[in-house]
Design a protein around this nucleic acid. Sequence first.
DNA 1: ACGGTTGATACA
DNA 2: TTGTATCAA
Length: 659
Amino acid sequence: MRGDEAKQVCPQIQLVKVPVARGKADLNTYRNAGSEVVSVLARKGRCERASIDEVYLDLTDAAETMLAENPPESLEVIDEEAVKSHILGLNNEDGNDAKENVREWLCRSDADRRDKLLACGALIVAELRMQVLRETEFTCSAGVAHNKMLAKHASAMNKPAQQTVVPFSSVKGLLESLPIKKMKQLGGKLGTALQSDLGVNTVGDLLQFSEEKLQEHYGINTGTWLWNIARGISREEVQGRLLPKSHGSGKTFPGPRALKTISSVQHWLNELCEELGERLRSDLDQNKRIAHTLTLHARAYKSNDSDSHKKFPSKSCPLRYGTVKIQEDALNLFQAGLREYVGSYKSKTQGSQYNGWGITSLSVSASKIVAIPSGTSSIMKYFHGQYSSNSLSKQSQDNFIHDAAPLSPSGSESYSDLILTEPQIEFHGEETKIKYDVTSLDEQEDKKNIWKEQDPSCLSPQRMQNGIIQETPQSLPSGICLGGASGLEIISQSEQQREIPEEEPGVKYSVPSFDQVVQKRNTSKEKGATSILRFFKSCDPSCSSRKQEHVEAVQNVEAASSVGFQSTSSIRSDPNQVEPKEIVLEVTGTNSSRSSSAHIEQQREAWGYKVDEIDPSVVDELPPDIQEEVRAWIRPHKRPNVVKRGSSIAHYFLPAKNR
DNA sequence: ACGGTTGATACA
DNA sequence: TTGTATCAA
């Protein structure tokens, strides 16, 4: 119901509007409210912030621990919230108390192990949802299942403020009647194509088609994906990422409001860039992250032209910090795009004259955000027993940024002694690989076998999966302070506090990247014998099987698309008000998709591992005090694009042919 | 149901 | 690397 209709029917209604700042909707209240909820939900497992109000959680480990130590069947009281769960496929047979049925299901001692894990997940999620309510005053809904896809669908089934569990045996029934367009990722053109090409109307209809057939129609990747999702198989990992990967600010100018002059475009770009600049500043202050690319998007119409269908091209350039610089660069990007859009024709009409074009939307965004390396070299201290974190001085850092060229010999001695000599690293184009000198081939075989023991059903039985929590603020939140920063963030603050001028930090914040450190290491002669693998082996031979599993995961380079391990976050803020619209928070656990043992051989040769694709869970095996630092190493690191190409920013705004 | 403001990802 | 297209909340 629209607002004015509601007013008619219900004159006393209090309607809350989305806040407006700089002439446009301002969503910061919602972003901050989401962060608050995330900081609660991220406590119990790997957490992925999937959108402004949804998260996925991988609760596998927590559920396994509970199953081993405090299984539901051993409890005399089951959480009141947990017994309110909806269990798909659990029929409320004869007038039995529904809650009693749920309690029974949760505690079944003869259940499939997979369902026992789900039961543990349901208990954990119920507890998390109550914590969210207590600490933030937001409610949320959740889905608990064996992968992200199933949890996502389950989370939407009972809201608000309820949770739904998808037992293993209910997967088939859930999917076969699900309309194809309701499936995530199939709500658009692909779903429509499925309907018209193959007459598929429910997910179940997909089962009739072979994987090959689906690949013929939709390509190898999409074909396989379709074949899998029809069977409830999804190996998408829960990405350990609590922070967004980009920031943007935009506005539309529909119909008659289209912008027709450069100066009105400049005005709005200035507003948008101001907001973007503020958010970049907050990200830098709160999360110690720096964005490296500025992109401008616009939509335009051109009446009066042969190809009036042409789209306004998006343009990007290196991002220079400082609101004014961002504004200048954005305007230049716009003008570069406009020249391309209008083509090279004369009409250089002035002022309010008719230009032949109109801008119907403008947005600026900042991407390629990288964390300033947080730790110093505590891991080296750990390994070598002596290294002062101060030796990575500002000066050495500056040395890092002036040349991006590999193997530059400059300034290496000042810190060569603090470089770990162990893993040998090679550069192959863009990829950084670590070469271990590994154990024996026999051991490798063992690892492989362990891997194979996993359930082939691919429903990833060993990993409990997802829950989705969706959320409904029923009262206005009062902004309870959660103490935002996690342990990691505190570390980063204490170890590398730097002053950041209000305007123009610039490249100065470039700090040695992993690659660069590695590069220095390569130039030094030292050869070492320490590697993370070796560390694993040396620390506890008795639990080798688990470690080997991790090692195997490391081998499976192809499978896990590199997880960007953005450790912490938790932006503290106070969302003063959120309108009583429903907020959707999804919690999901995912299966461990260290999948596809198919491609091992390719990587077997030379035992080269791509740093970017190392399974972050190996880090869990390290001592807590160095985990975060290792994560920072494993985290995909873009080399700051210092200089290179035309040294001037103007390069980006010239016509392409002149480059 | 629909539009506005986001954000992620795959692919060229 | 830059830019486009698609999908989603």
